[in-house]
Computed example of a mutant assay.
Amino acid sequence: MAVRVAEDRSLSVRPGQIVRTAWVDIDLCRLGNRARMSPEAVEKKYRRLLNLGDCAPWPPVVGHWDAERFVVCDGRHDYLASLMIGRDKIFVCWLEEAAP
């Protein structure tokens, strides 16, 4: 029996866009939204990462590149939990325009 987990994370993709995913160095990431976060929500993500081991949850953290830095737009709880657990890489996704 498959278990479905509802996520807030979503991404709207237009025709002509490509969704890219990659493991990036966590030191190259920064938060795009610094609104207050619930410690309980971060703890929940921390426990989830502990259960996953070296794997990453799906959907990945969503953001965009700003020069050499990846800006986390959606998935900040996962990002902070990854920092807390001591991971050196985080699985992320972003949109790019397709080549003509």
Score class of each variant (00 low, 15 high):
82 S>M: 02
95 L>F: 00
15 P>T: 11
41 A>S: 11
20 R>Y: 01
99 A>D: 01
31 L>G: 09
75 G>L: 07
12 S>I: 02
96 E>L: 08
14 R>W: 00
33 N>L: 13
31 L>H: 13
20 R>I: 02
26 I>K: 00
57 P>F: 09
87 R>Y: 05
26 I>H: 07
43 E>H: 13
62 V>W: 04
36 R>W: 06
80 L>C: 08
23 W>L: 08
4 R>D: 04
30 R>S: 05
51 N>Y: 11
13 V>K: 10
44 K>N: 14
39 P>V: 15
78 D>H: 07
54 D>K: 08
60 P>Y: 06
23 W>A: 00
99 A>E: 05
57 P>G: 14
59 P>H: 15
9 R>I: 03
22 A>R: 07
18 I>S: 03
81 A>Q: 01
76 R>Y: 00
84 M>A: 14
21 T>H: 03
80 L>G: 02
63 G>L: 07
1 M>P: 00
17 Q>S: 02
86 G>Y: 11
78 D>A: 02
80 L>I: 09
45 K>S: 15
5 V>M: 06
99 A>V: 08
51 N>E: 15
62 V>Q: 07
11 L>K: 06
39 P>F: 13
61 V>G: 01
25 D>M: 09
29 C>F: 05
38 S>G: 14
41 A>Y: 11
62 V>C: 09
93 C>L: 02
1 M>W: 04
33 N>D: 15
55 C>F: 14
91 F>E: 04
67 A>H: 08
28 L>E: 05
61 V>P: 13
6 A>R: 09
31 L>R: 10
50 L>S: 12
50 L>F: 08
12 S>M: 05
93 C>E: 04
37 M>S: 10
96 E>S: 07
20 R>D: 03
21 T>F: 00
41 A>W: 04
72 V>Y: 05
24 V>F: 03
32 G>E: 12
98 A>K: 06
9 R>H: 00
66 D>I: 13
43 E>Y: 14
77 H>M: 05
7 E>P: 00
1 M>F: 02
36 R>I: 13
73 C>V: 09
25 D>G: 11
41 A>F: 11
65 W>Y: 07
53 G>S: 15
33 N>R: 12
56 A>E: 12
51 N>D: 11
37 M>T: 12
41 A>V: 13
5 V>C: 01
43 E>P: 12
39 P>Y: 08
76 R>M: 02
52 L>N: 15
1 M>S: 04
57 P>A: 12
38 S>F: 05
56 A>G: 07
65 W>N: 07
5 V>L: 00
75 G>R: 08
91 F>M: 06
71 V>F: 07
70 F>Y: 11
80 L>A: 00
24 V>I: 10
47 R>G: 10
36 R>Y: 09
49 L>N: 14
91 F>A: 03
68 E>H: 08
